[in-house]
Amino acid sequence: MQPFSRHTGLVFPLDRVNVDTDQMVPKQFLKLQTKQGFGRVLFYDWRYLPGEKPNPDFILNWPRYKGASIMLARANCGCGSSREHAPWALADYGFRVIIAPSYADIFYNNCFKNGILPVTLAENQVDELFKLAESEEGYKLTVDLPSQTISDAHGLSYKFEIGEFRKRVLLEGLDDIGLTLKHEADITAYEQAKHPHATIYEAVDSKYSARR
């Protein structure tokens, strides 16, 4: 996984509550089989008019937010579907950081798996950032994970909380599966003690079974 330590970037203020993952990546794009190329379809229905013409009303299309890499959003960001296509699309588009007062659980978790840092700040701090990003063209923030701070060029500085373990995994870009496989002995011990199984007692109409 791509490690994250410190990032400075242009802020894109998406002033909506409950931005759900259906909006980030509509279902017609869930049929693809790779993780690549989702940046093009990020916020598809909001971003494009028929024929994939950019919708001038959607602020991601405004020239001043071109190249943004920090997304500012309102409460309950990423609610709804578990689709990891949402963080794939955000990352592929170029977003490295999201800042919001709160997140839906699955989305929050999915961000970390894709090298995106979801920063949680208080409502009033997020409010302040919205004002700054909307009033000052080219408004940038620097997000520093080791010191857990967000700062701008004018001296604003906010501290944010993040779990120690999540922080370490992101800083070092650790592979979750690799980490778990180090505990192979524990997993085997659990299986020997508990005998997890799925015994079948009556035939079902299925294929390819590996029933033990």
Partner: peptide, 14 residues
């Protein structure tokens, strides 16, 4: 769970 975790469960059952 997300797809990364689907892969995690496939690989580790945890």
């Amino acid at each position: 769970i997300g797809t990364s975790e689907v892969e995690h469960v496939l690989a580790t059952q945890c």
